[in-house]
Write a protein that binds this DNA or RNA. Sequence first.
DNA 1: AAGTCGGGGAC
DNA 2: GTCCCAGACTT
Length: 363
Amino acid sequence: MTDRSPVVEAFAARVLDWHARHGRHDLPWQREPTAYRVWISEIMLQQTRVATVIPYYERFLQRFPDVAALAAAPLDEVLHLWSGLGYYARARNLHRAAQQLMARHAGAFPQTPAEVAGLPGIGRSTAAAILSLAYGQPLAILDGNVRRVLARHAGIEGWPGAPAVLARLWTLAEALAPRERTGTYNQAMMDLGATLCTRTRAACTRCPVAADCSARRSGRQRELPAPRPVRSLPVRRTRMLLIEDDGARVLLERRPPAGIWGGLWSLPECPVEADVPGWCCTRLGLRVERRGRLAGFRHTFTHFHLDIEAERLQLAGCAGRLMDDGGWLWYNPRLPDALGLATPVSRLLASLRSDPDPEEIRR
DNA sequence: AAGTCGGGGAC
DNA sequence: GTCCCAGACTT
C-alpha cells in the first residue's frame, strides 16, 4: 500500500463519518454478516437492485441456511428460488461453488482474494466484498455504486465498461480505501452511491465528499460516468405452445444448461411461420387440436427484444415417441413443482390458471 | 475488446 | 420507449 496524504485520509474519514449517521444498517445480510450470507447477497445483487433482491434473499436463506444445505440441494430447487431474478448462471455457479467449498475447504471460505475469486461466479469485486465485509480484510471493491462515485469525484472520462477506464477506477479505488475498517468503508461507498450519488439526481448538498468533487465543481454530475455506447436491439420472434393433457397439465421442456434461461424449464417453442399441429407432430410426436391464441407480448433482454406469441393446444393423441429422456415433463400449474421457470413462462402459466377456458384473444 | 447473460424500476 | 442496476464469463 502507498502512503496516504492528509487529503486522501480525509476522504475515507468523511465517508465513514457520513455512513455512521446516514448509512444503511439494517439490510437483511448486514444483521449477521457471515461469509456465507454476504456471499449470497453479493451474488444476488450483481446487476440487481436491493429492493428486488430482499424477498429472494429471505426465501433463499430460509431454505439454504448454510453452505452444506446449498451444496446438497438439487439444482432444480436452487433455480426455483432464483426464478424471476434473472442471470441464471449466477444460481448455477452458486450451486457449483457451494459444492467446491464442501469438497475442498470443508464448507468454509478460503481467506485469500485469489482463492475466493477462483470460485465460480466470483470476480475481483465480489471477492473483495466478501473478504472485507465478513472478515475485515483491507480490499477495495468496485461495483456500480463505487464506479459512479469515483468517476464523478475524480472527473474520470469514458464509459466504465471500457477496460482502460475500469483500470483507472480500480487504481483510484485501491488508493482511497483505508487499511482500517475497510468493510465499513466499502459499505459506506455503496450506500453513498445508492442513496446520494445516484444516476440521475446527485444529492450533492448532503454529500460528505462534495467539497473536492470534480463533477460537482464543473456541474457535470449528469454527464459522469459516461453512458454505455448506444446500440439498437434486434427483434426476434417466437411462438410458445401451451399443450394441455386431459388433466390440464402443461408440457414443459428443459432448456440447455448454457444460453438464455439455461437449465430452466420452458414451453416448447415453434417458429412463428410453422404450421403448429404439423410441427407438434413431427417435432414432439404429439397430435394436438388448436384451442386459440393468447395475447402476444414483448420480453426484452440485455441484447435483444423477443416478441412472444402463445397458442393453446389440447393433446389429442401421442404418436409414440419422446417423453423418456428427462428433458420433458407434464406440469400442473395449480400444484407447482420446485422448478426454475423463465418469467414469460410463469406469466403464461398464470394466465392459464386465471382463465381455464379462454376465448380467442386479439391484440 | 466485444458479446452473452434477466428482469424490473426509474425516467 | 431507454437506461442501468452491489458483474462475471466466454470468445
